[in-house]
Design a protein around this nucleic acid. Structure first.
Lengths: 340, 340
DNA sequence: CTGAAAGCGCTTACAG
DNA sequence: CTGAAAGCGCTTACAG
């Protein structure tokens, strides 16, 4: 066991022959205290290596300047970028961040939130796990009156603010752009229609075609999963069907990667013979060769908006503690689709 | 401003008509207290929605069960995997984690560490920024006697433990394997020789060739940077040289991606005409088509080892508070290099 | 301009 | 088996 060597305000006070209150006030630059006393205190702080005990401060102020985060999965770069941006934004406002991971498990999510409440974080940022159906823990959050903002995935019927991407609109706008450029034969490697992400994107795809009076071919909507192998399987199925589209819209970059592999195997060339685009991060897209075109979901933008919103609510600035913000998404036309 | 509604031990005590000490003891399962009293307390906890104030507990225990992390850059998947594994391991031991990012800036690093000390974390995990030259903050950490473990990048002359990859050995073993398979013409797209990573890897490359009596061609060691464009430039330079190697060893996956793009542009095929491998994560490598062969640095392994070591030091179990651990690295022979 | 008192919510010897 | 006392290191009215 180690013994910590921390100087306290009392130590400074005894050295300077004043009371600890004087030191406390001097440190907070209170008008009560003379400039020269503050000067003396600050010098002592330097010399003695004083480190203010924030735990004690938090206890007496009933405020921690800590935000609690719950993400489902840090191995997803999307979330790590997001967390990075949350930390950045929090820091601007002098908040620290305790990070927890739910691994998409409802139990972990619940325990993490409970733990963060016990730690008396000033606010919570949570991206709900895929499993979550029970709302009890969120009702508890409401009851103890801790501000919470959902990001990316929200439970919209609960009285909390949320920030999410406008996937459907983004899909429609992107496809409009491609269709205006002359593309009409577009297939979709979809996620599962059971998930909200898979659904939103697929609905956007359908709507865009219908809006442009392009018939929706059900055999060109291949529902799979979210992994590389799903992309491989989907393309094999499409290829077996005989007739090929000009462009494939994949539900994420991993599925796109699978499609690349499968396409390459047939000897077809991207983008000459077939074009691809996916939802994802432009940074990841650039690792692809040729660079994958992406409906670019900017996690940093989301992190900043969510954090600013939360801090506004903590500080009582926010007008409405139940705001929903949908972020617009940009399309990055990269070299995986020929310009026309 | 919101008013928090937290139940305290006192609230439970008044309801049960006992003193707060009795409640405190019951909650910690102290032998002093009767089973039925504990029963009553636990029921009250449930009914009243008691959330123990960990801040107060930390203050009186002089222990926070919080680890402070400083990473240079969360936008690097390597670090986010690492952080994920740190969080996992910390949780196993009932520790929470406050995460900070230095953005490779010495000032931020120093401020983050100071802030974490003020927050009275029980221990520190830090990956030193590229800029860092001043050791003062680490001497301060030593003086206040807070356990610290360096990971990935360490300042070895300081009296702290560290965990790092054995890049040089890994390079030599990987090249030995390729050379035994019959490859002898191997080029290297190196990082900057000024950085320890660039240096270690390049030295390993040279040593492996020399060990195998293969002449080192200086025109096949192309020093560049760590980005996609550096990979493109490097291959263009190599290609302009006329004679091509059988295999290129790139300093990371981004440089490998650049090489893929440049190679593809010339019409050459991977792996038929030329093979590639790089240092990196196998997960990222799988996005490449064909899948990039990697000297696979497992960040999860590093996170776990570093965290276990730190917690051992916190709990006074560690034998030697100045241990150096070098982690072995595996080679994943994927489809970007033909099997022979 | 300086300080004494009370409090934040917990824990830990110690006494009965 | 239960509780009174002192303490963790800070802050904030209030009094002088």
């Amino acid at each position: 066991m180690s013994i910590r060597n921390h100087i306290t305000q009392q130590d400074i006070a005894t050295r300077l022959n004043v009371s600890r209150i004087t030191v406390s006030k001097a440190l907070r630059n209170h008008p009560d205290i003379s400039a020269e006393m503050k000067e003396k205190v600050n010098r002592a702080v330097e010399e003695m290596g004083y480190s203010p005990n924030l735990i004690a401060k938090q206890l007496s102020l009933q405020k921690t300047f800590i935000l609690g985060i719950v993400v489902p999965d840090l191995e997803n770069c999307f979330f790590s970028y997001l967390v990075d941006s949350i930390i950045d934004t929090a820091k601007e406002h002098n908040y620290n961040v305790i990070l927890t991971v739910s691994r998409e498990k409802e139990v972990f999510e619940r325990n993490n939130i409970k733990n963060l409440i016990d730690l008396r974080v000033d606010g919570l940022l949570v991206c709900v796990s895929q499993e979550t159906t029970d709302h009890k823990i969120f009702e508890y959050v409401r009851r103890v009156n801790i501000p919470l903002v959902f990001f990316d995935r929200a439970i919209r019927e609960l009285p909390f603010s949320y920030v999410a991407f406008n996937d459907k609109i983004a899909t429609i706008e992107t496809l409009n752009q491609l269709i205006s450029a002359g593309y009409t034969r577009i297939a979709h490697f979809a996620g599962y229609s059971g998930t909200s992400i898979g659904n939103e994107r697929c609905n956007g795809y359908r709507e865009a075609l219908i809006d442009n009076r392009i018939p929706v071919r059900e055999d060109w909507i291949i529902e799979g999963g979210y992994e590389i192998d799903d992309g491989i399987r989907a393309f094999e199925k499409l290829y077996a069907g005989g007739e090929l589209p000009e462009i494939i819209l994949t539900v994420n970059d991993r599925v796109a990667s699978g499609a690349y592999k499968a396409i390459r195997k047939t000897g077809l060339k991207i983008p000459d013979d077939i074009g691809i685009l996916g939802y994802g991060l432009n940074d990841t897209a650039r690792l692809f060769s040729p660079t994958l075109s992406v409906i670019d979901q900017d996690p940093r933008k989301m992190g900043k908006i969510a954090t600013d919103l939360l801090i506004d609510e903590i500080q009582g600035i926010a007008q409405n503690p139940n705001t929903g913000i949908l972020i617009d998404v940009d399309f990055k036309w990269n070299t995986s689709i020929q310009k026309r």
